[in-house]
Each structure stands twice: as structure tokens, then as C-alpha cells.
């Protein structure tokens, strides 16, 4: 049996004293919690996770990216206030704006000790162009292509990556297609049976765009 995530966290803090680690809760039925690492010490923590004799996480099975947009979290707190001399409980709603960020998620297993997964996350400061994270490729070589894929589709730049270029899209491509605010090229064509999202796009082209655009612009040359 692998140690619990709390034990792993405290042992990491013992090995890398300055590290700031958070446990990210997961409310879904799987209850798969993860460790949020800070960028500065991620590489040292990675080395620890791989080399520690009780963990030996020698297999990086998956690396993926997540795009979190700016979001507003509403919190309702009950506070006691005196209204006309009588004490009452009143709901007070506060809105907290959480700025968006990009996230890289790694899943590690140990082939040697047959346990896992340990999930770690890293978050960028913002969603701006050139958002950075440290690369874990020096620790787990198998992360190389997957970090390139995250760079390609989400635009996270990995410091310390040996060969960071686009892997799926062409080099001249400038967008990051898996970001939630990605805008596709407008190349709608006539569809015999549009539905759902396609129907919405079809409607835009049927009514709101009297000028030639998309496929019709092509037609005109």
C-alpha cells in the first residue's frame, strides 16, 4: 500500500524544506486528490518522488493540460447584525474573482513497487502569452512529447525542456486550439442536416451575415 497523500506531502516538505505544497481536493466519486506544486521547487520535488525508496514513482503515465478561465465564486455567509435593536441572522453574499490560469497535470505510477497513481499539478500565474512552468522532462523522459503537446495546444512554455516545439500543429500556427477562448477559422459550409453547435453556426450564416464570408468568400475567389 502506498502512503496517503498527506504523508507524502509531509515527507516532501521534509526533503525539500522551502516547497509550498497544497492538496487539491476532488469532490467527484473517485476522490482522486492531487498535489499542487509550486513552480520553483517542482523539479526538486520530482526528483524526490522518483528516487525516494518508499515511492519510486518511475513511470510518468500521462501529462495533460487544463485551461481555467477567470471565474467568480459566490460565497454566502450568515452574519449576525442588529436590526432595530433585535439581533438577526442575515445572509451576506460575497463575490470573489479568481483569475484564470493554465494547469499541467501529471500522473505517476511506480512499476517497481506496483502502486500509484500520484497526481501532481502545476499552475501558471496567468493565461497570458508566454505563461511558464518548469519542465519535468529532465526527471521523467516520457514527459517530453506530452509537454510539447501541452505547449502546442495550451501555450504553456516549459523551462528546461530539451526540444520545445509544436508537435501536432505546424510550426507557423499561432493559436492554441485547446484553450477555451480559441476561435476556429470561419469556414462554415452548407450542411444538409445541421444540429446542436452546427445548427447555431448555420443560423449565423443564414441570417446575420448578408455579406459574403466563410465558404462563400472562397467561392467568389
Amino acid at each position: 500500500m502506498m502512503e496517503s497523500l498527506d504523508q507524502i506531502k509531509s515527507r516532501i516538505e521534509g526533503a525539500v524544506p522551502e516547497a509550498k505544497i497544497e492538496i487539491v481536493q476532488n469532490g467527484s466519486p473517485s476522490q482522486q486528490q492531487s498535489l499542487l506544486l509550486d513552480s520553483e521547487h517542482a523539479l526538486a520535488i520530482g526528483k524526490f518522488l522518483r528516487d525516494d525508496p518508499a515511492l519510486r514513482l518511475d513511470f510518468c503515465s500521462n501529462v495533460t493540460g487544463v485551461d481555467w478561465l477567470d471565474r467568480i465564486v459566490k460565497k454566502t455567509i450568515k452574519i449576525k447584525t442588529a436590526v432595530d435593536g433585535v439581533e438577526k441572522e442575515v445572509d451576506q453574499t460575497t463575490e470573489e474573482k479568481i483569475p484564470g490560469y493554465l494547469e499541467a497535470v501529471y500522473h505517476f505510477y511506480s512499476i517497481a513497487l506496483k502502486h500509484g497513481p500520484v497526481i501532481i499539478r502545476m499552475r501558471t500565474a496567468d493565461r497570458a502569452e508566454g505563461a511558464r512552468l518548469p519542465s519535468l522532462t529532465p526527471v521523467w523522459r516520457s514527459a517530453e512529447f506530452q509537454e510539447r503537446e501541452i505547449f502546442d495546444l495550451y501555450g504553456i512554455r516549459f523551462d528546461g525542456h530539451p526540444d520545445l516545439r509544436r508537435i501536432l500543429m505546424w510550426d507557423e500556427f499561432e493559436d492554441y486550439p485547446m484553450r477555451k477562448d480559441y476561435v476556429q477559422p470561419d469556414d462554415f459550409e452548407w450542411e444538409p442536416t445541421p444540429h446542436d453547435e452546427v445548427l447555431a453556426r448555420a443560423k449565423q450564416h443564414y441570417t446575420l451575415r448578408p455579406e459574403l464570408d466563410g465558404a462563400e468568400a472562397l467561392r467568389k475567389g
Binding site: 510550426d171 459550409e189 462563400e216
Partner: peptide, 24 residues
């Protein structure tokens, strides 16, 4: 050619004519 957002051109008009959108 590989463009910044899409292939350029998106189609070769000499061989391809997209279907006309029927406006209602």
C-alpha cells in the same frame, strides 16, 4: 501553405466550388 490560423488558401477555387448556402 501553412498559415497562422489555417491553411492558405483554404481551398483551390479552380477545382473546388463549395455548396451554396440557402438563405431562408
Amino acid at each position: 501553405k501553412f498559415g497562422e490560423h489555417d491553411l492558405e488558401p483554404a481551398a483551390n477555387c479552380a477545382v473546388f466550388q463549395p455548396p451554396v448556402i440557402e438563405r431562408t
